[in-house]
Design a protein around this nucleic acid. Structure first.
Lengths: 240, 240
DNA sequence: TACAGTCTTATATAAGACAAAAGATACACA
DNA sequence: TGTGTATCTTTTGTCTTATATAAGACTGTA
C-alpha cells in the first residue's frame, strides 16, 4: 500500500477493494480473502482492513458472516430491491423487471440541465416494466448520457434481467449511488394509463430519482409510475 | 461498567449513553464529555467508547466534529425532518407542523391488530397539519396506545411544537425507531380534501408508518396525506 | 490591534492481542 | 457402519494502546 498520500490507510484499502470488486476479482456471493490475508496483501493490520470493510458493508457492497467470511453483495438496482406490500399485511414481494425498450434521443432543455449536459446531447431512453405476481404495477423511464454509456444495447440489458446498476458497474466501470428519491401522487396520463392498465386521471405514485456516480456527477435520471390501489411501495433499506 | 454480562462492552456503553441522553443529561446540541472522559467513567478504553458513539452517530442520535466534540442531535420526528422540494429544483424546505387535535378513542379491529392490542383498547388519535411557506400541504393522523402514553395532553404536544418523537422521549422515556415507510397514491376523500383544500378524488400522496420502540413493539401508527402538485416529498436521510 | 506561533483538548486512525462463532475433522462408541 | 461429540482451524468480532490530525484558545510580538 502506497504511503505517499496523506489519505488514511483504510480509505486506500476501501479504494483497492472496491476496484477489485468492480474488476470482478470475486463474484457475487463469493467470499473475499480473509481479513488477515487482505491485511498482508495491502501491508496493513487486520484492524485497518476491518475498518475499510465496515464501510463497504455499510454501503451494501459487501456482507459478512461471523466465523465464515466476507462476501460480495449482489448489486441489484433500486427498484429491483424495493418491496411491494399488500395494504393490510406484512412481508411483501420484490418486483420482476421487464425491459420495454431502449432508444436514442436528444436532450431537451430540462433533461440537459438535470444531467448537466449541453442541449441536444445524445441520450439513451430506457423503459422498464415492473410486475408483481404477474400483474403490471409499475413503469419506469430512465435517461442516460450516451457519452458515458456508449453502445448501450438492449441485449446486454436484457441479459442482466434489467439490472441496470449491475450493467453500469460491469460494462462501464461505473458505480452508482442512488440519489435522493422524491415521491408524488399524480393523475395518470394516457401513456401511463395504457401501459399500467388503469383509467386516465387515476392516482399514480410517482418516483423521481437522480443517480450519481461517486464523483457526484449526475448519470441516470429516472421517473417511475406505480399503481397503488392494492400494493404500497416500500423503499429498499439503506441506500448507500 | 459491569463486566458480568456476556454483552460486548461497546453495547453496554451504547446503552449507558443512550440512557443518559434520554435522561437529558446533555441537552440538544450540547457537547458530551470527551471520549476519554467517557472511557474513564465507564472503565473502558477510548476506542471502545468510540465504537459505541460510532453507532449512535450512525443512528443520528449524536453528531461529531473533529477536534471539537460530540453532540446530541436534535431529535425531531420523521415528518418534521422530511423535505418538500419544488418540482424542478434543488434544495427544498422543511415543513412547519401544527397540532390539530388529540382525542381519546377505542381501537377497532384493524388498529388493534396493527398495534398489537386487544380490541377496544384506549388509543390517542392525534392529528397534525403540515405547512410549507404558509400553505397547507399535508395532514397526518396518528394512533398511540393510551396504556403507554398516559395523560397525553394537547398542551404538552403543543409546547414541543408538534415534535411527537421528542415528547415520547422526554415525557415517556420511550425512544422510537422510525419503521419502514410505505407510499401510495390515493384519491382524496372528502375529509382530507377539505383540510388540504383540494378537490375530492384529486391524487394525494399517502404515507403509512409504524414506529416501534427499541424492543420492536409497535407504538405509533401513522397515516399521512400530502398534496404534491407543486412539491415532491423527500424522506429524511438515514432512518436509524 | 493584528498576526503568527504553540499549547491544549478533542476526535480520527492504526496496530496488535485476544475472544467468539461456525464449519470441518477426528474419534469414541453403539 | 453409522452417529454423536469433542476438538481443531479458520474466520469475523471485540478491546486496548499508541499515535496522528483538527480546531480553537492562548500568548507573545510587532
Amino acid at each position: 500500500m502506497s504511503k505517499l498520500a496523506a489519505i488514511p490507510l483504510y480509505r486506500q484499502v476501501i479504494r483497492e477493494v472496491t476496484t477489485a470488486v468492480d474488476a470482478g476479482e470475486w463474484n457475487a456471493d463469493e467470499s473475499l480473502p480473509s481479513e488477515n490475508d487482505l491485511a498482508r496483501r495491502f501491508g496493513v493490520s487486520q484492524g485497518t482492513v476491518r475498518k475499510a470493510l465496515d464501510v463497504l458493508v455499510l454501503e451494501g457492497v459487501l456482507y459478512r458472516r461471523q466465523g465464515v467470511g466476507t462476501f460480495v453483495s449482489d448489486a441489484s438496482d433500486f427498484l429491483a430491491q424495493a418491496m411491494f406490500v399488500p395494504l393490510s399485511g406484512y412481508g411483501g414481494e420484490k418486483p420482476k423487471i421487464e425491459m420495454l425498450g431502449c432508444v436514442r434521443i436528444h436532450a431537451g432543455e430540462q433533461l440537459a440541465e438535470i444531467l448537466g449536459l449541453r442541449r441536444g446531447a445524445a441520450l439513451w431512453q430506457v423503459r422498464r416494466l415492473l410486475r408483481v405476481a404477474g400483474t403490471v404495477i409499475g413503469l419506469e423511464e430512465m435517461f442516460l448520457p450516451e457519452a458515458n454509456f456508449p453502445n448501450l444495447e438492449m441485449r446486454r440489458i436484457r441479459e442482466l434481467r434489467g439490472n441496470l446498476r449491475e450493467l453500469c458497474w460491469r460494462d462501464f466501470g461505473m458505480r452508482l449511488k442512488d440519489g435522493e428519491v422524491r415521491y408524488r401522487a399524480v393523475p395518470a396520463a394516457s401513456a401511463e394509463a395504457r401501459l399500467l392498465q388503469v383509467e386516465v386521471h387515476e392516482p399514480l405514485l410517482q418516483l423521481v430519482r437522480l443517480a450519481r456516480d461517486f464523483d457526484g456527477k449526475p448519470q441516470v435520471w429516472s421517473v417511475a409510475w406505480f399503481r397503488s390501489e392494492q400494493l404500497a411501495f416500500q423503499a429498499p433499506p439503506e441506500q448507500a
